[in-house]
Computed example of a mutant assay.
Amino acid sequence: MRRVSRREPGRVPQEGRRHTPKPGAIDRHVGARIRERRLMLGLSQQELAEAIGVTYQQAHKYERGLNRIAAGRLYEIAHALGVPISWFFDGLDSDQEPAPLTQRQRLWLEVARNFAQISNERHQLALSQMARALAEAEARRDEPPRPG
């Protein structure tokens, strides 16, 4: 005798479903690398989403490793971020997950991005000299007093 099953309205029968494995450690690693590169370039999640033709929410899920990324979409992301696809997999062989950027690292990247956008060489030189002077002042401040 065949067993009749009652299914809930709107529910797809098991045989009609596609099996999509849950995102795992590799997906989280790739997502972290996407976020890292996006931050290096100074892009918002919204800007990345627009560049690859997805919603902000979808880009967020990619970065968190919550949704898997299809090969074609990963190609689009690599193109938008200016890296080869293999870049997202660098460091995957190590046992540890990439550490998130510290506030200091983010600030350093922001300074580098802003400096790169200055086209006037005299302004670049002036900014470099100012940074050098500030660094030297910090070094002198941290030195122990000289006996005298």
Rank of each mutant, 00 (worst) to 15 (best):
A139C: 03
E138M: 12
E143G: 04
R132M: 13
E121G: 02
D90C: 04
R3N: 08
L81R: 09
L127N: 06
E143R: 10
A137M: 07
L92P: 03
P144S: 04
N67P: 04
R68D: 02
L74T: 10
A80W: 02
Y62L: 03
R28F: 13
Q45C: 01
A131Q: 07
D93Q: 15
G10I: 15
V54Y: 00
G91E: 09
E138D: 12
L127Y: 07
P98Y: 07
A78P: 14
V4P: 04
E76H: 14
Q58Y: 07
M1E: 13
H60A: 00
Q105I: 08
A133T: 12
A131N: 07
E47V: 00
A32S: 15
G53M: 03
F89W: 09
S86V: 05
N114C: 04
E47I: 00
V30L: 05
G91Q: 12
L127I: 02
A137K: 13
S119M: 07
A71H: 10
T55V: 03
S119E: 14
V111Y: 06
L41N: 04
A131F: 03
D93N: 13
V30K: 13
G148W: 11
E8N: 13
R106E: 10
E110M: 06
R17S: 08
P9L: 15
G65H: 05
D142G: 05
E8T: 04
E8I: 02
D90M: 12
M1D: 11
E138V: 11
